[in-house]
């Protein structure tokens, strides 16, 4: 796996190996796994009895109970399934920002490493994981699988990805939602830049299809602190030609107010739609971020 060392450091391996993801709700999967399945079927875990109706398989009748009660009951068993996780990674132009100093990592690289860690986490616990890379549309789509080779495919896809172009997050997520199909967990890793309402509508659609939607909103520290002091011309990473000259010292207050409004709108929209919203900075360790997120999630 030549791509693995590039996206996953050794400490990430160790950290992910110590973590487990437990589905919060039931999930649908093809393989027997560690998560509860909505299907009652072949299993050793008894769930309940119910009255026999015509059409039920005769072999499912609990004859011992019939001998005791003289009535026909059918035994039902709990079906344990593997989890199907889908990673939606934004590779639009806005994810290319890496700061003015040029020493930090870009938001896109942070997103790919975060996705790699999550992939490793799910594959290591035999869950199916898929990947969807998108900008204005879905560029790469790897359906969820729980094979070991799936991890290699994911790593290659993530390593080969590059960012650029505009973002139509709402449309792309709607398209992605149609591909998620069955109930599972969807991870959206994006800066979420764009109009808030289409984004929330798409996330709401995803939430209806998936059992859980987690939105890792990636911020670069510059975008949170706005540390500029000299008069600056800001050129759009997504739309060529779009620029704005600003005196940062006088504009900073307004910027921070805009930022707060945007963050509040996204956070409140996610909460209303029962979407887990995880703001994260691109300069924090992604493995630690996942660990902290899982710890908080289990506590909840």
């Amino acid at each position: 796996m030549p791509a693995l060392p590039r996206l996953l450091a050794a400490e990430d391996h160790d950290r992910m190996a110590a973590l487990n993801w437990y589905a919060r709700g039931v999930v649908e999967g093809l393989h027997v796994g560690m998560h509860r399945s909505p299907y009652i079927g072949v299993s050793v875990e008894f769930k309940e009895h119910r009255a026999y109706v015509r059409g039920d398989e005769v072999r499912s009748i609990d004859w011992k109970l019939y001998g005791k009660t003289d009535r026909l009951f059918v035994r039902q068993y709990e079906h344990e399934s593997n989890l199907k996780a889908t990673l939606l990674v934004d590779q639009s132009g806005s994810m290319a920002y890496r700061g003015t100093q040029g020493t930090g990592i870009s938001k896109h690289l942070f997103a790919t490493r975060l996705a790699a860690c999550l992939s490793y986490l799910f594959v290591s616990q035999h869950d199916a994981v898929g990947l969807s890379l998108f900008d204005t549309q879905v560029r790469t789509m790897l359906p969820p699988r729980n094979r070991v080779s799936q991890l290699e495919h994911l790593m290659h896809a993530l390593a080969d990805s590059s960012c650029g172009g505009e973002t139509r997050l709402g449309e792309v997520l709607t398209d992605a939602a149609s591909r998620v199909g069955r109930r599972g967990v969807v991870f959206l890793i994006s800066d979420g830049f764009g109009d808030v309402e289409p984004l929330l509508r798409s996330l709401s659609l995803l939430r209806q299809l998936a059992s859980e939607v987690v939105f890792f909103q990636v911020w670069h520290p510059d975008e949170l602190d706005f540390p500029f002091s000299t008069r600056t011309r800001f050129q759009s990473l997504e739309t060529p030609g779009q620029e704005r000259v600003v005196d940062p010292l006088s504009f900073r207050k307004t910027y921070l107010r805009n930022l707060e409004r945007f963050q509040t709108a996204v956070a409140e929209g996610c909460t209303q739609r029962r979407i887990t919203h995880v703001p994260c900075r691109s300069d924090e360790p992604h493995a630690e971020l996942i660990a902290r997120f899982l710890s908080r999630r289990e506590a909840v």
Binding site: A96, F193, H220, E223, T232, Q235, T254
Partner: peptide
Amino acid sequence: NRSRFYSVDWAAMHLLDV
């Protein structure tokens, strides 16, 4: 100062709108 400025490729353009 008005004629001289520093250029930055920026992502969050929507936050620069007043």
